[in-house]
Design a protein around this nucleic acid. Sequence first.
DNA 1: ACGCCCTTGTGAATGTATGCACAAAGTGGG
DNA 2: CCCACTTTGTGCATACATTCACAAGGGCGT
Lengths: 230, 230
Amino acid sequence: MTRRPPRPRERGIPEATVARLPLYLRALQALDERGTPTVSSEELASVAGVNSAKLRKDLSHLGSYGTRGVGYDVEYLIYQISRELGLTQDWSVAIVGVGNLGRALANYGGFGTRGFRIAALLDADPAVVGDAVAGLRVGHIDSLEEVVAREHVSIGVIATPAAAAQGVCDRFVGAGVTSVLNFAPVVLNVPDGVDVRKVDLSIELQILAFHEQRKADGRGGPEWIEALEA
Amino acid sequence: MTRRPPRPRERGIPEATVARLPLYLRALQALDERGTPTVSSEELASVAGVNSAKLRKDLSHLGSYGTRGVGYDVEYLIYQISRELGLTQDWSVAIVGVGNLGRALANYGGFGTRGFRIAALLDADPAVVGDAVAGLRVGHIDSLEEVVAREHVSIGVIATPAAAAQGVCDRFVGAGVTSVLNFAPVVLNVPDGVDVRKVDLSIELQILAFHEQRKADGRGGPEWIEALEA
DNA sequence: ACGCCCTTGTGAATGTATGCACAAAGTGGG
DNA sequence: CCCACTTTGTGCATACATTCACAAGGGCGT
């Protein structure tokens, strides 16, 4: 294992890198809309709010898509990152739980523009079923399996109250969904091969509270270094 | 610097640990409500969805609050984690942007129960200002500085469209807020000493899409190890 | 009072991520 | 055609995180 053939990426992109690719993608799209044809790692890093060395190492995991002395071609890099993230194909998403959060998700513009199609909105509450939200009719949760099959849903979004989340998750998994995005404040149990990501509003606040307290404690303390995450 | 006095925690809890403490806290509260008096690291880890060695190391950063041979006292540990996170004091939160997301946040029960008080809801849209949401009257964005001072707001939540986010952030910072939770899909620029955490719906979906694609690509591929994050 | 069993707390090993600093590689001017 | 300048891509050092494996310590039965 000494020479690497001109094969671009070989499998195995670090998780930390994957988590930053969407950030780069967004920064690049902003540059593209402004008509910028090429960008250096320094500039792009600054827009994305990261260190330029990190950016270059991240991009190097996808392949050598830059030009030394020049930088990166914005459109080409957008394409490469999109492809790597799997955004060149369409993904069907089903959202379960049409409360305020579910509505916010359904109306969130960022989805449709990036290869995600909301295939269905489902809820258990008869008072909500039948409503029109974001141009879709809300269906009943009982049709989950049918909808997943018909619409080829591969990503399930859970925006229900905590108590209902595990049940919905089980039904998603049972119907063949292998990626779940969970907004309910519970730890979901899933079999191997199923990815779960969670977004938890109150956890983020608690982390902020911790740092905030540290800043206040520090009155009179010796050092004061504050780690920042952008 | 050789001997450590019996002082429990000395400053400097790893960031990764801090991010998990809220998870443990929630698991403990669930156990407490069920009347469980003590819990072993194995059990608690299982409920929280992490490895038990990791749990023990995390807790060891706070001090030695367990009893060998027995486990942890649930109530005592709840108190210790709460104190460490700064949840034994009250934090005032202001939410800017009262769209669907802002409403979802305002109505989210998990806040009030854990030391977070929603001090104000603000919006720029005259059609929304004056509405009652979650028992509060929506104020105008122009009163931001006044509200922050009067209510001692220390955490600002941004739930506005992307274009407005940086401006709101600047006003928060100018008013003295040093912790910001950002839901808008932009990278915020803040001076040193200000913490920003972001929650980005579309980034999470893109990460899922990446892994989903990998699973599909893998048809015929040799290995199949899937990293999971719960 | 003693010894067995259980579970914590932690040293050490491994794995992963970050950031510096520079050689390699491309551009453009003369 | 060559040289000076710019910017990438990466080897290396360091820092951070995870996991194993076990000694230290506490409870409980006899």
